[in-house]
Lab assay of single mutants.
Amino acid sequence: MISLIAALAVDRVIGMENAMPWNLPADLAWFKRNTLNKPVIMGRHTWESIGRPLPGRKNIILSSQPGTDDRVTWVKSVDEAIAACGDVPEIMVIGGGRVYEQFLPKAQKLYLTHIDAEVEGDTHFPDYEPDDWESVFSEFHDADAQNSHSYCFEILERR
């Protein structure tokens, strides 16, 4: 099963200049909980913004210009990325925008964090048809001392 995991502000903004323009430790914990011990696929820009392999996960970098870091697996196509994951129950696609666009048609599940923030962004989550998805989990949280904005975790499964 292919799943996408993303944090989205208003207007589906997911990033600005290779960074997330908010401070939500709870979302980072949600991300870790849902990706640990699963292969993660990301684009080169996302890889560069993280700066290191995510521990406890097979890191697969999709790029037309593969790098030389041998701590991760470099691939040039969506099919190659899927094959590099091996026989696993769930593959997690973690961004960025172009990689989400490439995998959305193949995805069966979306793990979304909806952030109540209007922020400037240069990267967006692809538009998706809500009628194609069923919400199977939703959990709202107010902003607090650690988390700069209110947010809602949601899991959607393709109908």
Rank of each mutant, 00 (worst) to 15 (best):
S148D: 02
S3K: 08
A7C: 10
I94T: 03
Q102A: 11
D69H: 06
D87Y: 07
E118G: 14
I60L: 12
A19D: 12
D87S: 10
V119Q: 14
V93A: 14
N59R: 03
M42S: 10
E118W: 09
C152I: 13
A83C: 10
E101T: 06
V10Q: 01
H141K: 05
S138Q: 14
P25H: 04
F137D: 10
V78W: 15
D87V: 07
E118I: 12
Q65L: 08
P53A: 10
I2M: 05
S63A: 12
W74G: 06
G97H: 01
I2T: 01
V78S: 12
A117Y: 01
H149Q: 02
A83Y: 06
M16Y: 00
I91D: 00
K38S: 13
Q65T: 10
N23L: 05
E134N: 09
F31Y: 05
I94C: 04
E118P: 14
G67P: 14
E139R: 07
S135P: 12
H149C: 04
N59M: 04
A84G: 04
V40R: 00
P25C: 05
K58A: 07
L28Y: 11
V10G: 04
L4F: 15
V88R: 09
A26L: 03
P55A: 07
G56A: 05
P39V: 12
Q65D: 09
P66F: 15
L112Q: 04
E154S: 15
A9M: 02
R12I: 03
E120W: 13
A83L: 09
L28N: 01
K32Y: 04
M92A: 14
K76A: 07
H149M: 00
S148W: 01
H149K: 03
T123H: 03
T73H: 08
G56S: 07
T35V: 01
G121Y: 03
G51Q: 09
P126T: 14
P130L: 14
S135R: 15
Y128T: 06
P53Y: 09
S135H: 08
K109I: 08
S64K: 09
I155M: 08
T68P: 12
L8A: 05
P39F: 12
K32M: 02
D87L: 09
W30F: 15
L4P: 00
F31C: 01
D132R: 13
L110V: 04
G51A: 08
